[in-house]
C-alpha cells in the first residue's frame, strides 16, 4: 500500500502483527457491511400485514350444491365449487389417456370432501379468469384464448399447458377450510 517516497519512514512495522491487524479490521468491516445490507434487502420481503393474510380460513357452509364462489387469497382469485354428483361422476369417468395433464379426480380434491373443488382461478395459459360452467366439458372456459377445463378443472382443449392450479389447503372441519 503505502510505499510513497515522500513518507518519513521511521521503522518498518513487523509484518506479522501489521497484517493481522489489517485482516481483522477488514473482516470486522465485512461483517458490518453484511449486517447493514441484509436488513436493507429484507425490507423488500412481504411485510407483517401481508403475511398475516397469507393463510385464510373460509366457511363453506353457505355454498349450496351446484354453486361456486370466488374468494381472494394472497391477492389471487380462488374458485370454490360445490360440485353436484353428476359433475363428480363425469370427472371420474374420464380416462387418463384423454388428458393433456393427467390427474385423477381424487388428486384434484381431498378425500372425504370430493364435492369441494378449490382452485386458483387464473388460466394456466396467460392468467385470464375462465368462465364457470361453460364450454364443451361442463367446467370452465377461458374467454381470452379458448382454453377449456372439465369439472375437475383439468385442461381439455386450447392453449393452456396444465390443469388449473390447486392452492395448498386443508379441511379444519367439514365446513371450514384453511387455504395457505
Amino acid at each position: 500500500m503505502a510505499t510513497q517516497s515522500n513518507l518519513a519512514h521511521q521503522d518498518a512495522p513487523k509484518p506479522g502483527r501489521r497484517d493481522f491487524l489489517y485482516i481483522a479490521a477488514g473482516a470486522v468491516g465485512a461483517v458490518g457491511v453484511a449486517g447493514v445490507t441484509w436488513p436493507l434487502i429484507n425490507q423488500l420481503n412481504p411485510d407483517a400485514s401481508v403475511l398475516a393474510l397469507a393463510s385464510i380460513e373460509f366457511d363453506l357452509s353457505n355454498i349450496q350444491e351446484g354453486e361456486s364462489v370466488t374468494i381472494k387469497w394472497r391477492g389471487l382469485p380462488v374458485f370454490v365449487r360445490h360440485r353436484t354428483a353428476a359433475e363428480i361422476a363425469e370427472a371420474k369417468a374420464v380416462p387418463m389417456s384423454e388428458l393433456k395433464d393427467p390427474a385423477t379426480d381424487e388428486q384434484r380434491t381431498k378425500p372425504g370432501h370430493e364435492q369441494w373443488l378449490i382452485m386458483i382461478a387464473n388460466c394456466t395459459h396467460l392468467g385470464c379468469i375462465p368462465v364457470g360452467q361453460s364450454g364443451d366439458y361442463d367446467g370452465w372456459a377461458c374467454p381470452c384464448h379458448g382454453s377449456q377445463f372439465d369439472t375437475a378443472g383439468r385442461i381439455r382443449k386450447g392453449p393452456a399447458p396444465t390443469n388449473l392450479v390447486l392452492p395448498p389447503y386443508e379441511f379444519v372441519t367439514d365446513t371450514l377450510v384453511q387455504i395457505g
Partner: peptide, 30 residues
C-alpha cells in the same frame, strides 16, 4: 427505502409511516 413504503396522501401519510414502523421488516430501525 422509506419511499417504497410511504404514501404521500393526507389521509394515508401518517398511517403509512406507522405501517413502516409496525409492519415492514426492520422498518422501525430504518
Amino acid at each position: 427505502i422509506l419511499a417504497m413504503h410511504y404514501t404521500p396522501h393526507v389521509s394515508l401519510a401518517f398511517d403509512s409511516v406507522e405501517h413502516i414502523r409496525r409492519d415492514v421488516n426492520g422498518g422501525r430501525i430504518i
